[in-house]
Each structure stands twice: as C-alpha cells, then as structure tokens.
Design a protein around this nucleic acid. Structure first.
Lengths: 402, 402
DNA sequence: CTATTTCGTCATGGCGGTTTACAAATTAGT
DNA sequence: ACTAATTTGTAAACCGCCATGACGAAATAG
C-alpha cells in the first residue's frame, strides 16, 4: 500500500520484480477476488472455469480467502440444472472497508465502502473551506473520518485504507498537495496531518471521479476521457482501464489547451486557453453574474428559468469545449467522452453546441459524449473504491495485516 | 505471434489467461533475455541478482536459452574483482532475425536485424510508388524480402517474423491497409500478397518510427510524443514504454487538431486543422513551390540557401506545430517531444518558432523538444526491431518453432 | 430406483524456484 | 609460495503450487 494505488501501467516484461511461485499465488488470489466481485455469487467450479484453473486449485485459493475473511460462503445454490449444486461464494460484507474522503471547496465528506461496493457509513459537513488554513480543515476531516470508521467498525468492518480527494494538483508521492488554487493551499503535506494508523493515498478529485466512472459507470468503456470542472477544467485520461498520469503527474490539463491562439491571456502564460472560454469565472462573467457561493447551482437554475444571457454563455462554453475536445479526441481516439463533476449538472445547455462542434470537425462518426450518472458523488465514491480495488488487486496483503 | 506485436497495455489483474507455472517459466525466460540484451554480456550470477531469482534458477533458464540458440556463452570474464570469474553470456548473433520492410512513397526497403540489434542484410529499390496498384508493388517487395532472407540465412540467421511499415492507416488486425492517401490504396489486405511462411505484422510507419526512437534513441524516455510528417502529420503517443493506439487504432492524429478554430476548411470536415498550416501541401504553397519529387529535400535545400519565402513558410509551420503541441503536452504531460521523419530534416527552421510558441504558452519549464537521430531510417529499423522485441518478450515461442 | 451429471475434495505427481552444499577459480594477505 | 577469503556455477534435497485422476455427495432425467 506504499506504492500509489492503481498506476495506469503495469510494468512490462522488463520489470525488476521476481516472478516466483508466491507471486503466482498472489495473482491467482486476486483473480478469484475480481471474478467473484464482478460476476456476483459464483460456485468454485464457475470461478475455476472462468479463470482457467482447476476446481482443486480454486478450492485451496477460496479456502485461504475465506480464512482471511475476504470471501463468504452463502450456502447451496438453487439448482436449475442437472448435477450437484454448487456452493455460492460472495465477497464478504464484514471484512476490510475502503474509507473515502473529499475536501471540497464548500464541504467535507467521508464515507466507508465495503468490498461489495456498498456504502456502509458516511458523514458530511457543509461550509466554505476556501482560504482556511490546512490544519483546521484537516483536523475537522479527521473528526469525520473517526466517526465513519467507528460506525463501520460497529458493522463488523475494519478500515483497509484512506483515500482523500482534493481539488488540486497532487505530487506523485500521493501525499502532498502541490497547489489547490480554490483552497489557496500550496505544498501541503496532507499525510502528516491525518491519522497514521490507516494507509493513506491522496489524489486529484478529477482522477477519482474518472475512476468512479470507470468502476461504477453504466457503460464503462476501458478507454475514455473524463472531463470535469472544479479546479478550472480538468480531464482524466483513462487508457486500458488505468489512469494516464503523465511524467510529473500533470496529465489531463485540458483547461490550458489553446482554443483561440490569439485569445485573451491566461494565468498559465498562454493565450486563448479553454479556461478563458469555459472556465467558471469566464462563464459567470459572460453570463453577467457575480461569483458567489453555489456558483454551479446558480448557473443551472438561471439556465433552467430560461435566462438568455446564461444560456448564451453556456452555449459558447460548450463550443469552446467542443474545439478543445476535438483535439483531444484526434490525439487519443477514446471510446467516449464523459462529462462529470460540475459539467454534468450543466450538460443540458452545454451539450448541443459541444456535440455540434465535435461533429462538424470529425470525419466519420464522431466520438460519443455522455454525462456522468454519478455527478458530484463521483470523487468521493472513486476514492473509497480505490481502496477496495487495491484489496481486490492483492488480497494476500490484507491477510498479512489482519 | 498472432496477437499484434507490442500492445501498449498488458492486461490487468482481471485478465482471462490462467496464471500457471508454465507462464511463470516463460516470463522468467523473457526477463533473462531482456536483461542480457539490455545490459550487454553478463554472467549468470549478475543476471540472477538483477532479476531477483537465485543463481540456480537462472542456470536452468540459461541452459534452455542456449539450447534453443537464443543465448551464447562467450567464455570467462576478465576478472577485476576477487572471486571466481563468471562466464559471460550474450544474446546470440546466429539465431532468429527480425525482417523489417518499408513501403515508402518513393522507395521500397527491407532489412534483417539480429537479436543483438545489428543490421545484417538490406536491400533497397528507389522509384515512385504513388498511384501504382498494390499487387505489383507487393510483388516487388516480396522479391526484396526473399533476397534479404537468403542473405541472412547465409549468415546463419532464420527469419522470425516480417514487419511492414506503410504510409497509411492500418486496421487493428495488423494486416490490411485501410487507407494510404499518398499511395492511393484503400482497404488492401497486404497479408494476402506477402510470403505466408513468415509471421506478418503491418503497421503505420509513424508508429514504427516512434518505436525505433523508444528502443534505439539516445535518451529513450518511457513517455514521449513522437511527431512525424509523411502522411499529413502523424504523432505517436508512447506511454510507459508502449504505444497508445486508441479504440479504433486511430490515435495520434495530430494533423487534425484545431489550431485556428475558424481557419480554412480541411478534408476531414474541420476548420483550421494543423495540417492546413504545417502539412506538406500547405508549406509548399506558402513557400511558393510546386509539388514535385523530393519535396522535403527541396524545402531543406532552399531553406539552407537562405530563401526567405521558404524560411518564412517553415517558421509559420513551426508556430502552428507549437500551438498544437501545447495542447497535446497539456493533455499528456510527456517527458519530451521528438520530431522524426521528414520533420527531422526541417528541424533547424521549424524549431525556433515551435519552441518559442510552446515556451510562452507553458507555465513553468516547457516540455523539451528534441530531434530524432534516426531520421528517415526510423520506420524500417522500428519494424525490424519490433520482431526482435517480440522474440525477447516470449523466447519460449521461438523454441517451439525452431 | 437407477443412470447421469456436476460439485467439492483428497491423494498423487510434475514442475519450478529455493535452499544448502561443494568444487572451481580468482584475489588478498602473510 | 601458501593459506584465507570471495565469488561463480552446479547438483541434490526440499517446498510450494497447480494439474490429474478418483471418489463421495447431491441434484436431475428417465
């Protein structure tokens, strides 16, 4: 759990880790967990045929997983077919839990998710965090974490890890926030301020949102572009079921893709960046609104009422997004583009111009654009689930600690 | 060898292949080959310490690799240190060879590369292929292949595979050319026309060029963007040492990234695509030159002579490239950008404006831009080496065939 | 009620890497 | 020169992991 969770790219054949029998066993334990987790209650024989091992081998793997409390035997299956019915296996609802936390601009939230993916405990505190110092905020968050952990423990769960989503850039050590403009935090080592008992990961909320989409979304393609707008405009690139992070961890900065090469100057030093057209500030200005508390809700409300200035501003933002996405789609050839975060709520007014722009600039069928069903819950759920996935990916590791 | 060579992303833990002891053995054989190949002559003990297995285990692996002719024992090492000197192992120079072929607009080329990476045979035929039918061209290429294979066999090599680089889009089956505008070929199954004795792969020449840069380049980062210009402007995205191909295999279409949203209409349906500013046709027009035979050489020659119209055209093209690359760099955060193919020859006049544009649009240190040392040889070498890498990746497979 | 099918488990065996031991080949020290 | 120390490569015994084959258990089909 010291390595960053869910690296986008497993090492190739040239990697340095030895390939020994223990490693084989660990991978096979993981494959059993993944199969049972993904395809519901399954008999040992069903698992065996799916992963290509023999029933005997799966039996010993399952025994070990049951002993460590990661799998549960549900009892005999209702037999519709001939032959002895199997004994249904399911992922345990009483073992390790993933604790997800989110530091938002206007709220703090924490939740616990069991291996089955069910949210078993949660806590939220509303109130602006913009401009507050990190220490009191993290202290408050720690309080929420302790409450959620206590509640989870009452249900027979124990915390396998804590993943924190923050609205800012996070260093590749997955502990320190390099810069979070909307909170006004810089180079803050969050890890030092949080409970040390639980293994910790910190990541950008856009990344966790994209992972939530990958793991919990409806269609769940393996290659897509997830666009969200919280800190300016961020995108997460998902390739082959993993996150593309970039050399310095800064990949996905869609907000600074040039849309109009000689457009207005941007804070990044460039000109005509997407953020100058579709960023929160730019849209509010174009709509003739003052920046205030719940800015996204305000925009959505006005647009729904039929406010022409707001609708026009969103239409223009959608057009700019369409241009930037045309470039991204040409470069990456993703299976789809998903709008998440704040953009999901504004989608009805962004989508028409966005899709029109994407369509007319693409030869052949355009890349489909969809809207996240998870909306603002994405990052929190993604964080909690990242811990759960880490357990599924290496069940032997929790056995060593449990 | 039926699967496409060098998929960008090995399957994750949820894959369907069984993880059995034979698989472990195969992977360890591959790790030995890669280690010896990458780090020159090495003793068994040195290999063991590098890959994390015991000397005894490496001994048996090496025995098997020597038996199948993939490794060679060079004899005792010169000892500088205390202790019994090891026996140096090297990749064999007499085993399997990778045959690379290139179908260019103005030439055909074939070469054979041994496991050590040495070019051991080659054949070239100059002459325009634009507009010729596929059949006679492939027939001619087959002749060159047979000549190169014969020469390689005289040196004790045998062909482990044939990889063909073509200037166009290739379907994911790695056999059929979907469309090659500069040859005027469409939906041509190249595989059907080539010798069937040798396992075949076909890919875009830009992809092979990028792989050559990855495997043979000087600095060889693991994440970079390789830009070349043969068919319009193509880029190849290399992530974690693998090619990012996209859902339909169309990733890397940098030529159709919008640079000026309301610019001239492009064949792709868009407006102001990069190709309209930095494409071959556009540059020739801006320079006041007629499209003729060796267009790149012509441009380079005139620019070197000091022709202001040509230099201005290249400066403008560099600026447009800089804008498009700004977007790509923001999205992918690569370690560097490499100019290859035709662009390498024109780099002296493209680079200044390109880097200036990239620099002023980037906050903090800009992404370094370098020029490929391989130049026009890249795709051919990349093709041949892709076969060699496939052998290193699964040495057991050649043992089964040899 | 019997034959058939499928499930889970047990005993056996093969395969692959580890451990332990040892001979061989070199350097360092006296 | 001779001994001690160090490192290499290999062989034998061992252990862990999955495959194979056989078996009892539990269902359906006739």
């Amino acid at each position: 759990m010291t390595a960053p969770l869910h690296e986008a790219h497993p090492a190739g054949p040239g990697r340095v880790l030895p390939d020994t029998q223990q490693g084989m066993r660990r991978r096979n334990l993981a494959r059993v967990m993944h199969t049972v987790s993904a395809e519901g209650p399954l008999s040992r024989a069903a698992v065996a045929s799916r992963i290509g091992l023999t029933r005997a081998a799966v039996s010993t793997l399952v025994d070990e997983l049951i002993r460590t409390g990661l799998l549960e035997e549900l009892g005999p299956e209702r037999p519709g077919r001939v032959g002895r019915p199997g004994s249904a296996l399911a992922v345990s609802g009483h073992g390790p839990a993933g604790i997800g936390a989110e530091i938002g601009v206007d709220h703090l939230a924490v939740c616990a998710v069991d291996l089955r993916g069910q949210v078993r405990a949660r806590a939220v505190r509303h109130g602006a965090n913009r401009g507050r110092l990190p220490e009191p905020v993290i202290e408050e968050l720690t309080g929420l974490v302790r409450r959620v952990v206590a509640e989870a423990e009452r249900e027979g769960l124990w915390p396998a890890g804590l993943a924190v989503a923050v609205p800012g850039l996070v260093a590749r050590d997955a502990r320190t926030v390099v810069r979070a403009p909307n909170l006004d935090w810089h180079d803050t080592d969050i890890g030092a301020l949080l409970p040390a008992e639980i293994p910790l990961t910190v990541d950008n909320e856009a990344n966790f949102g994209a992972l939530a989409e990958l793991w919990l979304g409806e269609s769940t393609p393996h290659d897509f572009l997830h666009v969200s707008a919280e800190i300016g405009i961020g995108a997460a690139v998902v390739v082959a079921g993993g996150l593309l992070r970039g050399t310095r961890g800064f990949a996905g900065e869609l907000g600074h893709v040039p849309v109009q090469p000689e457009g207005p100057v941007c804070a990044c030093g460039g000109r005509g960046c997407l953020e100058q057209y579709a960023g929160e500030e730019a849209v509010l200005r174009a709509a003739g609104l003052e920046p205030g508390e719940d800015r996204v809700g305000l925009l959505a409300g006005r647009a729904a009422e039929g406010d022409d200035a707001v609708r026009g501003a969103l239409r223009d933002a959608g057009r700019a997004l369409g241009i930037a996405l045309t470039g991204a789609v040409n470069l990456l050839d993703p299976e789809s583009v998903v709008l998440g975060g704040a953009l999901a709520g504004l989608a009805p007014w962004l989508l028409p111009s966005l899709e029109a722009e994407l369509d007319r600039r693409t030869a052949g069928p355009a890349c489909p654009v969809s809207v996240s069903r998870l909306g603002p819950e994405g990052p929190l759920l993604g964080a909690a689930h990242s811990v759960v996935r880490a357990v599924l990916d290496d069940p032997a590791a929790v056995g060593e600690r449990a």
